[in-house]
């Protein structure tokens, strides 16, 4: 009898073979430990945000959100993200175009520099702008003379936010564009396309999922940044408080419902971010376009 033993190929793929599986007890124990850990550190905190926010009923929740200070915090957060994300988007695309499509000296040093903000504590990120633009900073006297306020004002918040979200998009795009190579672009140029035509018609469609991925992660951090913004904001109510700073202030005033009400908006933002992120990962998988970087 030659020929395949029946069923051998059917058994092997969908589930691992018996010899490489744990006993049922061990399996259940491991799943239990993992889920218990995730529940304690992720599940409970997430649920608690909403429970605390609604602990005194919907009415107080709505009222807390409609407070002028809360509203202006939401507005400022949106403004900051609306500046920081596009700025880092343009930078990310330019940097990855230069790095992925060309060979030049000092490239790996440049990549290291782009990663720098990830290695800097948020507090330090805020501090360096105070050192530059604060009252006693390098440009402090000059700014005061010309009546320009950067620190303890919106521009400082924007700058600090741009700094902490600086690498997000570039970091997503560089490995992606490197993996895709430059043959398609060369083909486009040899077919007569101009530089912008090549970029918009060939490059951009190829990186759209990676780009979107970077943008939503960048946006989540931009809207949620606390440490860096806290240092440069000055905490002026209704003026220089972003949502996370507003949460801190009302929390420290023991106004827990108000703090958790605004926090619940930020938690929703996080959930939406995770949702879109999973969607993008799924879409990228469907279209066969690899997404680099797990976070």
């Amino acid at each position: 009898m030659v020929g395949k033993p029946p069923g051998s190929t059917l058994m092997s793929t969908p589930q691992r073979r018996i010899s490489t599986r744990e006993s049922r007890g061990v399996t259940l124990l491991l799943i239990g430990v993992a889920l218990g850990y995730l529940l304690m550190f992720l599940g409970l905190p997430l649920v608690a945000v909403f429970v605390e926010a609604l602990s005194k009923g919907w009415e107080l929740y709505w009222k807390a959100l409609q407070e002028p200070d809360a509203l202006s915090a939401v507005k400022l957060t949106l403004i900051v993200a609306a500046i920081a994300v596009p700025a880092n988007l343009v930078f990310g695309v330019a940097a990855s175009w230069a790095i992925a499509k060309f060979d030049f000296k000092g490239k790996s040093l440049l990549i290291t520099f782009i990663d720098l903000p990830f290695a800097v504590s948020p507090v330090v990120s805020g501090l360096i702008y105070v050192l530059l633009f604060g009252a006693q900073g390098w440009f402090g006297p000059w700014l005061q003379e010309h009546d320009i306020k950067l620190i303890f004002a919106v521009p400082g918040i924007v700058l600090a936010t741009i700094f902490v979200t600086f690498p997000f998009i570039a970091r997503e795009l560089i490995p992606l564009m490197q993996a895709q190579g430059k043959e398609e672009e060369e083909a486009a140029v040899s077919l007569g396309a101009s530089g912008w035509q090549t970029f918009f018609r060939v490059t951009l469609p190829n990186i759209k999922w990676g780009l979107l991925y970077g943008v939503i992660l960048c946006n989540a951090r931009a809207m949620g940044e606390f440490g860096a913004v806290s240092v440069v904001s000055g905490h002026i109510r209704g003026m220089t408080n972003t949502m996370p700073l507003h949460v801190e202030i009302v929390y420290n005033e023991y106004n827990f419902v108000a703090a958790f009400a605004v926090a619940s908006l930020l938690a929703l933002l996080a959930l939406v971010t995770l949702g879109i992120k999973s969607l993008v990962e799924w879409q990228a998988k469907q279209s066969g376009e690899p997404l680099h970087g797990a976070h």
Binding site: L38, L42, G43, L46, V49, P122, L217, A220, M223, G224, E225, F226, G227, M243, P244, L245, V247, E248, A263, L266, A267, L269, A270, L271, T273, L274, G275, K277, S278, H295
Partner: peptide, 13 residues
């Protein structure tokens, strides 16, 4: 998907 929550949830929250 939820494993990434700490990346997405603002630290103050």
């Amino acid at each position: 998907a939820l494993v990434d929550l700490p990346f997405a949830l603002p630290t103050a929250v």
